[in-house]
Amino acid sequence: MIEIRNVQKSFGSLSVLKDISLQVKKGEAVVIIGPSGSGKTTLLRCLNLLEQPTNGSIRIGDAKLHFHEGQSIKRQFLMELRLHTGMVFQSHHLFPHMTAQQNVMEGLVTVQRRTKAEARTTALKLLHKVGLSDKADSYPYQLSGGQQQRVGIARALAMGPDVLLFDEPTSALDPEIVGEVLKVMAELKQEGMTMVVVTHEMQFARSISDRVVFMDQGVVVEEGKPEQIFDHPEQERTKQFLNRLNWL
């Protein structure tokens, strides 16, 4: 489904990703963990091209792009790859001037050129899926943080992506409402959605993931099954990180 090869990303002289290679299979949930500044969010943003890698290649489904330093890629090709992905942001980034339903409809109407009626039906179905049928006509400011994030998930799902990307989806939420977002994500996983999740929720990472990737200082330090990473990490840096979280 996803194949990342030798991806590098630099901001000026600062090298954030150093030669990352990673594969995600269809239906797989991969969780990326690591300390702040490890490059995990940048890697996720490279996957839907909010950041363009400096070097390397990314393949998602049948769309593939090669990146070379100093070479820009036509927006049209970026779009092709991007449309295979859906992104859920840390601070949701809902459109504040649109209701929950309009937020979910937006991509369907402007990008996929569906009729309003069609888009409305899809939007209501998706809002029902994330447990917000009764909030369709609410504006984002009228929703709680957890509800806003679930609308964000519905908005990303609406475009029918092959893979959903989550950038610390619960980091900005109060602890007691983290659960409702994680529940929706677990349901999506059950249904076979391919997911790449950057998170600090170790308990959740462990329960939902098929594979855990530990990143530090722009490289993949260790990856494997959750039991392996969380219970028997091999690398010293992984142990240190989990220790600091009182996990080991």
Partner: peptide, 27 residues
């Protein structure tokens, strides 16, 4: 208007003109 609005619309696959007209200018 926060950068996140551009990014969210971008991630839906909207063009620059669509983002301006539908997301940024109304705000």
């Amino acid at each position: 208007i926060p950068q996140g609005q551009w990014e969210a619309a971008d991630s839906l696959g909207m063009t620059r003109a669509q983002i301006l007209r539908r997301i940024i200018l109304p705000q």
